[in-house]
Nucleic acid binder design. Structure first.
Lengths: 213, 213
DNA sequence: TAGATTGTTAATCGATTAACAATC
DNA sequence: TAGATTGTTAATCGATTAACAATC
């Protein structure tokens, strides 16, 4: 209770959505051996203004140094801690279609600390089959699994029509965040965050940019 | 030149990002046989306010009817036309890793008019192999292919370090929109739109929501 | 007709940018 | 020291919401 002087408070949504990008860039720079980064160079790399970068970083518990910028090692660590990715984040994947398969097999997510604990699907013909190292389990096992393994995030990769029902089951089982890969809008209580991957929507947004040109 | 009375002008970015969602929902309702939808019910379905919905739809060339709402058939048609998805949109996919494979195999995108014309990869060991009906081509063939097939959208699904170079090649070949599936930020001229899929970033955003709970 | 729902203007809210004193 | 860069406040900008006359 209480915090040690540095008031962290709530971080605005717009800022939270940029923090992962600062983390990716800072990680990259640190791996390249770069020790200091200025707000101007972060801004340049990410297509922002230096003012936005400084404003954003003022929300996390890390101070830059005048004339030098931000130490990449420290910044990376604090960004990871702030986001909660300094330790494994437990996920389940629901829906073993093409997109689901791809995510389960994508090593990058594991490397970044997102641990897929189990893969579930409704379809009797795929239950028991394998995706990489995962044996696909039936939906009837999901709720207990999420509870027992203390899974935080559910990745919803099912057909549009099934999305809300799956989301409801995940929430009931205790998931606190949902990554929605479907085209459906998913309703959840205020205590549960939903982030939409919006892949089809992104393509449609691009179609608008591209059309009649 | 000029338009027939209804000034459409530029549609704000925030609105363009919601139009695909209205389209998805309207499509769904129309398929269910629903003929009219109100701003309040669209808002309820998508987690918005009815005010936002009416404001947004005022940007497209379609009028609702007092006391009845919006005709789903007409609304669907005009939304599709406004976004430029009333005809095939030609894409290429660069990078035949797990994520790229999944997109190439995902029938939903084809059904929605996004036509993958070709799949390209740098890696000699995969060139010539097949993904579904696609034979993977080498990167050396990409620029000519994009020009000849008049491809509008490039889907970038390569490792972080290769993202900018691939984007540059796509832009040089004439692509007008890029769907960026990598964690890298990609720079492009103002004439080219870039939309980031942000899958890892979304997971990290969820990690923040989920942490210490 | 009465009432429901649109379209639009004005008010509010939040996010971004500019500016600059503090500081290393 | 002089100059570069942060942290922060204030100003601007854009997006969302409220309100209500028009209308079917």
């Amino acid at each position: 209770m209480g915090n040690k002087g540095t008031a962290l408070e709530v971080i605005p949504g717009a800022v939270v959505r940029r923090l992962p990008r600062y983390l990716t860039q800072t990680q990259y720079l640190r791996q390249q051996g770069v020790e200091w980064v200025s707000s101007a160079s972060l801004a340049e790399a990410l297509g922002l203004t230096s003012s936005t970068v400084r404003q954003d970083l003022s929300y996390i518990d890390f101070k830059g140094v005048a004339k030098r910028g931000y130490g990449t090692g420290g910044l990376e660590k604090v960004l990871a801690r702030t986001l909660g990715v300094d330790r494994d984040v437990r996920c389940v994947l629901v829906g073993a279609g093409n997109l689901g398969r791809a995510l389960a097999l994508h090593e990058e997510f594991v490397r970044q600390g997102f641990k897929i604990m189990g893969v579930f699907d409704n379809h009797p013909s795929v239950v028991g089959k394998k995706i990489g190292r995962f044996v696909i389990k039936g939906m009837n096992e999901m709720a207990d699994f999420v509870r027992e393994q203390q899974v935080g995030i559910g990745i919803v990769s099912v057909p549009h029509a099934a999305a809300q029902a799956v989301a409801d089951q995940l929430v009931a089982a205790g998931a606190r965040g949902l990554l929605n890969l479907t085209t459906a809008h998913v309703h959840a209580p205020d205590t549960v965050s939903v982030v939409d991957a919006r892949i089809l929507a992104s393509l449609r947004e691009l179609a608008y940019a591209v059309k009649d040109i």
